[in-house]
């Protein structure tokens, strides 16, 4: 389903926002330019309720079972998972690097916290990404306003709580501007 106007079904539990799943995969020979990124990323479905989320999610491959250089993105409907999107342009992301084997569990926990509005930062959250790489996997959560320190601290603290991260986990905040340079 790529419907723009997904609605909760009768008796279902609505989400605060609709969310769209995206998938991207890069072949190592291709350059990582923004154009090829846009060409390689595709929408795979939008959900509007808790029940729609589970129906969709249950059919997806677990990220930890993906091979190569692949990403799942879950973003609020209407926000492209690219820094160029207006909602992301002044934003940034918290990055958590994970050793192999942890991605599926942490990805599920981060997206449940996002769908359930556990971050308590108003409109600030844009989406979350799990990136499968060769040596390690990377989780990130994107927000709109990178220079709003109250918000970024609150997101970090919520992440620590909901993910119950190993104590030696390093969390790093990057503005999308920095990523661009």
């Amino acid at each position: 389903n790529n419907n723009i106007n997904m609605c909760p079904g009768v008796g279902e539990h609505p989400l605060q926002y609709n969310y769209t799943f995206w998938y991207s995969r890069r072949t190592p020979s291709r350059p990582a330019s923004s154009q090829s990124y846009e060409q390689n990323i595709r929408q795979i479905g939008t959900v509007a309720s808790v029940e729609q989320f589970w129906r969709f999610y249950s059919h997806l491959v677990r990220p930890g079972d993906l091979s190569g250089h692949s990403d799942f993105h879950l973003f609020k409907e209407g926000i492209k998972p690219m820094w160029e999107d207006e909602s992301n342009r002044s934003g940034g992301k918290w990055i958590i690097r994970l050793r192999k084997g942890l991605a599926s569990r942490f990805w599920e926990n981060i997206i449940l916290a996002m769908l359930g509005e556990q971050f308590m930062v108003g409109e600030e959250i844009c989406g979350a990404v799990v990136s499968i790489r060769f040596q390690e996997d990377i989780l990130s959560i994107w927000n709109r306003t990178s220079n709003d320190q109250m918000t970024t601290s609150r997101i970090r603290d919520t992440l620590r709580r909901v993910l119950n991260l190993p104590t030696n986990t390093i969390m790093e905040y990057k503005t999308h501007n920095d990523s661009l340079r």
């Binding site: 279902e12 539990h13 989400l15 605060q16 808790v50 029940e51 589970w54 249950s58 449940l112 916290a113």
Partner: peptide
């Protein structure tokens, strides 16, 4: 306005009982 908040436990319960409560 009011926000729709769900904790992890509730979301997981919805997974195991797909029929609306």
């Amino acid at each position: 306005g009011t926000r729709i908040i769900y904790d992890r436990k509730f979301l997981l319960e919805c997974r195991s009982s797909p029929v609306a409560k």
